[in-house]
Design a protein around this nucleic acid. Structure first.
Lengths: 332, 332
DNA sequence: TCGGTTTCAGAAACCGGTTACACAATTTTA
DNA sequence: TAAAATTGTGTAACCGGTTTCTGAAACCGA
């Protein structure tokens, strides 16, 4: 039978309260009594019940992470940042995938709230106004990743996707490209929309005609879109809204006997690990995913500890990574 | 202020017990009383406290997942299988990374046990005899992934790594290779050891001399090992203990102006997503990672529901995936 | 009509901790 | 040396549910 605090108390010949104080490092208890309690704990191999403690304190020291799909190579790094930061601060982490399904996402949020998580890190693109308002009534702090939000009591941490996209386009233009197409992500995902807008604006500002192909952020999508693009537009450079699509595009280019960057330059976004493993290595925008995760948890922790009550949008710095997948047109 | 069961009871003019019964779909309560309770719940936007329920029932409906590093591309798929299966069965999932640190791993296991998880899916390579015995005394069911274990009260689910490695070697031998080197994984990881043993035995059985280079399962390790291998041994084919090392090896081969598979063939293991994205696409052993995860949770669920008490080793089928990274020597 | 079941809701104990408060023992102060 | 302040421990209420047990009311057949 599993020992509880009462058993320890009896063995050490003290009260439950004293045992509890020892467990919580309360300095009131010391000397021989503390020794006795520690010995009793040791002898009984007693481990306090977290759930009982949770109920008594009305806190759980848990954080929930809700994301689209851990299988998408961008997210593990983010998740790792979150887990590390959470662990460091003494929280354990719940995790759940939504596949970008708004209904499922909603259910999971409520499930986690019922689990009494102290806070939630939410990576969501599908949040509509109504849902956001519902969440507002929750007392659980929420921090959004990769998505900014205004005038709502949520923290958010992200990068400036609009600016990042513009930089990518400028980089390509700087190499002499004019026929630059964009492999866009889903229309309901904010980061995808920002990148697309950044691309379009940068093109227009340079008096170039934008050409957008909308996809799904997946490798397969990149493959198909690229095929269409070659036939319908004939670009010399591609700015893809994420690396997975960029990789798919690159694959298709080679399948057709063309080469990167000699025939077509490709620029990605995210800087997933495989960008440095592909051949040619992919030039891309590096997003500090790990740091986003860490920051998100810190914001959450602040809220949970009551350090801060307002909401805050944090924008982290991205970085343009020059590798091998882009080349000037004049070098052909 | 957040409503509790008492508030609902008062509003519906019934007792706490009745509300509890309604919450748990107890058919005893029906008709008008049930209606009143449901209405009160609705009106108060009442959500039962999971932690209170946990304490009362002494169950949490949570499962813990402990793995080395979610950032390693093999694990997200496994984790996804686990999460999907857990979600389907009504469990929420804790997750934590160990970086293969035995001490940390131990701490996390105990932390999860204190969280009263119903069971733990453990992906560990560092378990020594002593630790395993300690875990035995826990009342929490544990299922091991990617690692078999005998005569212990744990379930395990894995593939036959020894056989998989032999098949890989036979495949390479069948293509006419004789100078086949092995990029091995860490000596303290069981799957790495099995693959290595399978390689060595298959080589010896074919009267070929094994050549093993020990690495760390990482891409960088593959790069460095491959460099050494080319200089010290001059293999015509490589069997890498995982895809990350295989990819690293391929990178190094190209960096030196050689080609895959024309100069050196490479065969990996795991079949991570990048294998089908690299150029050339990587031939490898496909491990049913998702299915391993699902199976692990099913075993856990059986145990938690008391369906089965003995322990069980499940071996899932792997598959040899023929792609582009291997070629017969005679074709040169 | 009446005793015997059956049905259904409530009272209260319980899960295993935490913590406000009370109070005895000890130390400090006057 | 007595009163006051401090220290350290115990008592008991509490967190918010679940569940056993009890008994009233409804139902049933004779």
């Amino acid at each position: 039978m599993k020992p509880n605090i009462q058993h320890v108390a009896e063995r050490a010949q003290v009260s439950k309260a004293t045992v509890s104080r020892v467990l919580n490092d309360n300095p009131q208890v010391k000397g021989e009594i503390k020794e006795r309690v520690l010995r009793a704990i040791e002898e009984l191999k007693y481990r306090p019940s977290t759930i009982a403690r949770n109920l008594a304190t009305n806190r759980t020291n848990t954080i929930g992470l809700i994301l689209p799909d851990i299988t998408n190579p961008y997210f593990p790094v983010l998740a790792r940042g979150i887990e590390d930061a959470a662990h460091r601060l003494g929280y354990t982490l719940f995790i759940s995938n939504t596949d970008n399904d708004p209904k499922l996402e909603q259910d999971i949020i409520y499930k986690m709230v019922e689990q009494q998580v102290g806070g939630i890190v939410l990576i969501s693109s599908t949040l509509d106004e109504q849902t956001v308002n519902d969440l507002t009534s929750l007392q659980t702090p929420i921090v959004l990743c990769d998505r900014l939000i205004e005038n709502k009591p949520f923290d958010a941490v992200s990068i400036d996707n609009y600016k990042a996209a513009q930089e990518a386009v400028h980089y390509l233009i700087g190499q002499g490209h004019t026929r630059i197409a964009h492999l866009a992500g889903p229309k309901n995902i904010q980061s995808a929309v920002s990148r697309r807008t950044g691309y379009v604006d940068a093109m227009l500002a340079a008096n170039l005609e934008p050409f957008v192909s909308v996809g799904t952020f997946s490798y397969e999508s990149g493959v198909h879109q690229m095929g269409d693009l070659i036939e319908e537009y004939g670009p010399t450079a591609i700015f893809a809204a994420n690396d997975l699509m960029a990789l798919g595009a690159m694959h298709e280019i080679y399948r057709r006997g063309l080469r990167v960057p000699e025939d077509i330059s490709i620029f990605g976004c995210d800087d997933i690990a495989f960008c440095a493993m592909s051949r040619p290595m992919m030039s891309t925008i590096s997003i500090p995913a790990y740091q986003i995760g860490v920051t998100a948890v810190q914001l959450l922790d602040d809220h949970m500890k009551g350090v801060r009550s307002g909401s805050k949008n944090v924008i982290l710095e991205h970085k343009l990574i020059h590798r091998e997948s882009c080349n000037g047109v004049d070098q052909k």
